[in-house]
Amino acid sequence: MGFQQPVTNMTDSKYKIAGFGALILLLAVSPLFLNAYWVDVLNSVGLYALLALSLNVILGDAGLYNMGHAAFFAVGAYAAAYLNTQCGLPILWALPVSGILAGLFGLLLARPVIHLRGDYLLIVTVGVGEIVRIALINNLFGITGGPNGIFGIARPELFGFRIRRPLEFFYLIWGFVAVTVFLFARLKNSRFGRALDCLREDPIAAEGSGINTGRYQLLAFMLGAAWAGMAGCLYATKMTIISPESFSFWESVLIFIIVILGGAGNISGVILGTFLIIGLPELFRGFASARMWVFGLAMMIMMVFRTEGILPHRPRLFKGLDRLLP
């Protein structure tokens, strides 16, 4: 990795911030002039953005190949659905619980396999995704409802107000996305984030610099799993019915595609990727049965033209570097 001319100077970053602000504002007011269908598409994008951001911690930041992310999504969704329908726990209280359960599940699972190299870890996570799905279909412990899934999940209530319409869900979901982006961006600039950067680029150098690689990888895995679990809780309350087919291998693949195509390790890239991957098939509805064909083609074209993702991860530069370089 050569030295790059630092791209940020004061005016540039000002424009950048203004641009981001405008985009966020546009997104925030967009449901007011979109119809219910497009608002719901944005809700879908928001949920997948959460999933993709959570996978990004594992795949983009820690560099661990995980193609079974739907498993953690499922654990969170089913935990929330079960606690809500069987124990009467309000859905927003179930949110942290489903996160914790999914995180613990991730930890338990990752502990013995985290040392596997790239593609071997990939197939193990694929396997875990499938095992979870099969367990759900076969009504494990009699609590998952088998192929029918769980239905009658309550809508969330906030200070006595019941969130029901797509517009209301929009602010709940995207509010959670905003919190997530804020937290994950902070995390990236923390000791934890720097450690992950280092161990992804060169695990041996990281080990040599005194970073406990195994521990950091496990932490990243657990954090990603927990966040996917919370996305599952939101998904459950939005759909009010969940069934195993919503957590198939294809879902894991989709989230994986979003992260890589958007730009692994780059939060804005991942969100842009979500808009493309979840939004495009909706725009392609006019193609009827050719819609997935066009989608596959678009995916190849985008990848070939932007080989490192749409917004690639830029290596961190030491802030004082521009003073040192001529």
């Binding site: 994986f256 890589i260 083609l297 190849m300």
Partner: peptide
């Protein structure tokens, strides 16, 4: 990066 080709392959698969 290796995973970019994987995503291109997934696109090819759908296609």
């Amino acid at each position: 990066p290796r995973l970019s080709a994987v995503v291109s392959a997934l696109g090819a698969s759908i296609f």
